[in-house]
Nucleic acid binder design. Structure first.
Lengths: 154, 154
DNA sequence: GTTCCTGCAAAAGATTTGCAGTGAC
DNA sequence: GTCACTGCAAATCTTTTGCAGGAAC
């Protein structure tokens, strides 16, 4: 099991624990959404989550997906990532989920995670002086990804 | 006239020029939207732009606002800022508009601009090594703003 | 006069809500 | 047995599109 997989299974445990502690019971839709989120490298839209679930486990209603995502976000276990096309994407967040930021290709729409220590330090330092209780941050870098640019050259 | 106001009027001129150069004529809705954007310190939603215009100039149809914003974004004169509630906000961007990043209060929903040189440098340095042609970036820091926190203390 | 710009109305999506049945505890 | 969870259908809201009249050039 890779380090990332271990971290992800820790996130599943943490998420289920936090949900239980908040008085939620563990219905099928809820754990299915948690499981799907834990396996993704990057953010998914509610529709994509629904499609994945339909394909790999069993159909879960769109409304339930939205409700579960809302709960997870309220508890700080998931994070909204809003980037392009008016669609909201969601990904695992909080303890065990591993923070990352995002690269968005403006041509193909692909969203990729990345991480940079220097950037994180700059934000941490900055956060101290804002007069605001900072809970999280998000960086989106937009441009044309390598594969789109190389297609262009042909 | 303050430095910011000068910059903003430069942006209006640049935007109108770029639009003209791209073959657009100057209809009422288009210049009204450009003017409203130029006066705002931070991003507005299409609905908010419509309300401001209705109050201060004259009613502009929602569809036209969306069309103008789309043109401006295609020309790099405006930028989408997507942050919470599935609503897309828009703000002036490009030459004369002054880049800034965003602070979002998760309690009151207020969006404020901020700028930090160290952060910009970290992102510029990072962008070089991504294997991607970077066109812009956006940083959103979320948390509870000073006024919301002080309300809490009372 | 031609071509572009706008507003209106309808359409298309995404997200939320109300309600009744089912399942967890 | 009670209360929470889920699915379904309807409602809401934002954004997009088609079309006809009006305005810029």
């Amino acid at each position: 099991m890779s380090a990332a997989q271990v971290a992800r299974s820790e996130w599943v445990a943490a998420a289920m624990g936090a949900l239980a502690e908040a008085g939620y019971r563990r219905g099928g839709a809820r754990s299915a959404v948690v499981r799907v989120l834990s396996e993704q490298p990057c953010a998914l839209s509610a529709v994509e989550i629904g499609e994945l679930l339909a394909r790999r486990e069993h159909e879960v209603s769109r409304a339930s997906i939205y409700r579960v995502l809302e709960e997870l976000e309220r508890l700080g276990l998931a994070q909204r990532v809003e980037v392009g096309q008016g669609i909201v994407r969601h990904e695992a967040a909080g303890p065990g989920a591993g923070h990352h930021d995002h690269l968005l290709c403006e041509r193909c729409g692909r969203l990729q995670p990345f991480h940079d220590e220097r950037l994180e330090r700059a934000i941490a330092r900055l956060s101290g002086g804002l007069g605001m209780v900072v809970s999280e941050h998000e960086v989106v870098i937009r441009g044309d990804c390598a594969s789109c640019v190389s297609v262009d050259r042909n």
